[in-house]
């Protein structure tokens, strides 16, 4: 069986709402004033979203993730190298999990 009308409808529906949300943010930004509170709000979104992405993963993960996050931060602050920071973070999680599990 290749597919069904129901599956196509579900996938198209998912695609349309996803695209609508992505396009809406872009188009709504055009309606916001270029200065004052709205502009300051847009400027603060990237940092706030990244903090919101990272914080729960670090805190709820436990000791392993906390150690790895500290290692990642240390490497990035010292080297300013994103790839090195990511690699050290992953390697730390892998090693500490091995030690804890083993």
């Amino acid at each position: 069986m290749l597919t069904s009308p129901e599956a196509v409808a579900a996938i198209l529906g998912m695609a349309i709402v996803t695209m609508a949300v992505k396009a809406s943010g872009f188009l709504l930004a055009d309606r916001l004033p270029r200065d004052g509170f709205a502009a300051a709000w847009l400027r603060h979104i990237p940092g706030a979203v990244l903090a919101a992405l990272v914080a729960p993963a670090v805190v709820t993960g436990g000791v392993v993730e906390a150690i790895a996050a500290a290692a990642t931060a240390a490497v990035f602050i010292l080297s300013k190298n994103l790839f090195a920071a990511m690699a050290i973070g992953v390697a730390t999680v892998y090693t500490v999990r091995l030690l804890v599990a083993g």
Partner: peptide, 14 residues
């Protein structure tokens, strides 16, 4: 952890 580590480094860079 690759996502978390990358996003954390990006955050610090900002």
């Amino acid at each position: 952890f690759a996502f978390t580590a990358t996003f954390l480094a990006l955050l610090l860079g900002m």
